[in-house]
Amino acid sequence: EEERTFTNEEEARKAKKEAEKRGLRVTVTKDGTTWRVRIG
């Protein structure tokens, strides 16, 4: 499991799409101005 943080919503969405392409489970949460993308 890996967690990545982004300040840019577009980049967070891109990371989510890429992980889904690899067949991984992805959770995206917004924490104030930060987007957290949890993969795995």
Results as ranks from 00 to 15, higher is better:
1 E>A: 13
1 E>M: 13
1 E>V: 14
1 E>L: 12
2 E>K: 08
2 E>R: 10
2 E>S: 10
3 E>R: 03
3 E>T: 09
3 E>K: 03
4 R>H: 14
4 R>Y: 15
4 R>F: 15
4 R>Q: 12
4 R>W: 15
4 R>K: 10
5 T>Y: 13
5 T>N: 06
6 F>N: 01
6 F>E: 01
8 N>L: 05
8 N>H: 05
8 N>D: 10
8 N>K: 06
9 E>H: 06
9 E>P: 07
9 E>A: 08
9 E>N: 03
10 E>N: 08
10 E>H: 10
10 E>A: 11
10 E>T: 08
10 E>L: 11
10 E>C: 14
11 E>C: 08
11 E>K: 03
11 E>Y: 03
11 E>R: 02
11 E>Q: 07
12 A>W: 03
12 A>L: 04
13 R>K: 13
13 R>V: 13
13 R>H: 14
13 R>S: 09
14 K>S: 10
14 K>G: 06
15 A>N: 03
15 A>M: 07
16 K>E: 14
16 K>L: 11
17 K>I: 14
17 K>H: 12
17 K>V: 12
17 K>Q: 14
18 E>L: 06
18 E>H: 06
19 A>N: 03
19 A>I: 07
19 A>P: 00
20 E>T: 04
20 E>G: 02
21 K>I: 09
21 K>L: 12
22 R>D: 05
22 R>T: 04
22 R>G: 04
23 G>Q: 02
23 G>S: 02
23 G>P: 00
23 G>L: 02
23 G>N: 03
24 L>W: 06
25 R>P: 08
26 V>T: 03
26 V>H: 00
26 V>M: 02
26 V>K: 00
26 V>G: 03
26 V>Q: 00
27 T>V: 09
27 T>Q: 06
27 T>P: 00
27 T>D: 04
27 T>W: 08
28 V>N: 00
29 T>V: 12
29 T>W: 13
29 T>L: 09
30 K>A: 07
30 K>R: 10
30 K>T: 15
30 K>Y: 15
30 K>L: 09
31 D>Q: 07
31 D>H: 07
31 D>L: 07
32 G>I: 01
32 G>M: 01
33 T>V: 08
33 T>F: 12
33 T>Y: 12
34 T>L: 15
34 T>G: 11
34 T>W: 11
34 T>S: 12
34 T>P: 00
34 T>N: 14
34 T>I: 14
35 W>M: 04
35 W>F: 05
35 W>L: 06
35 W>D: 12
35 W>T: 14
36 R>N: 05
36 R>F: 13
36 R>W: 08
37 V>A: 00
37 V>I: 07
38 R>P: 01
39 I>L: 04
40 G>H: 14
